[in-house]
Simulated assay, not measured.
Amino acid sequence: MSDEEDDYMSDAFLSQIQDVKPGVAMVKRVKEAMKREEKHKESNIKNRQKTFKEQEKESRETALQSSISNDNKGFALLQKMGYKAGQGLGKEGAGRVDPIPLNIKTDRGGIGMEEAKKRKAEKELEQYRKKVQAKQQNETKSLEDFRSRVRTEREERKIEGDLRRSQRACEQLDSQKGITVPREQWYWPKIGVDEEIDEFKEEKEEEDEILELPSFDQLQILTSYLRGIHFYCTWCGTAYDDEGDLSSNCPGDTAAEHE
Rank of each mutant, 00 (worst) to 15 (best):
168 R>D: 08
208 D>K: 12
167 Q>N: 09
185 Q>I: 03
178 G>I: 14
167 Q>A: 08
180 T>V: 05
172 Q>S: 08
176 Q>E: 15
194 D>F: 13
188 W>F: 08
164 R>F: 03
175 S>V: 09
183 R>T: 12
184 E>C: 09
178 G>W: 13
184 E>F: 12
170 C>H: 05
189 P>S: 14
166 S>D: 00
168 R>Y: 10
179 I>S: 02
169 A>I: 06
196 E>I: 01
204 K>V: 10
189 P>G: 13
171 E>Q: 15
178 G>S: 12
180 T>K: 05
175 S>D: 07
194 D>R: 12
203 E>L: 11
169 A>P: 04
179 I>W: 01
188 W>S: 01
186 W>C: 02
168 R>H: 12
184 E>P: 00
191 I>M: 13
200 F>G: 12
198 D>G: 02
170 C>A: 15
186 W>Q: 04
200 F>D: 13
175 S>W: 04
165 R>G: 05
177 K>M: 15
182 P>V: 06
201 K>D: 02
197 I>Y: 07
186 W>I: 01
207 E>R: 14
174 D>C: 15
172 Q>E: 05
205 E>K: 14
170 C>N: 06
187 Y>P: 00
175 S>Q: 12
189 P>Q: 14
167 Q>K: 12
171 E>D: 04
172 Q>D: 03
174 D>F: 09
198 D>F: 01
194 D>T: 13
170 C>E: 01
169 A>S: 13
179 I>C: 07
169 A>G: 03
185 Q>F: 02
189 P>Y: 07
178 G>C: 14
184 E>L: 14
179 I>M: 05
165 R>V: 03
184 E>D: 10
169 A>F: 06
181 V>L: 01
176 Q>I: 11
198 D>E: 09
170 C>F: 02
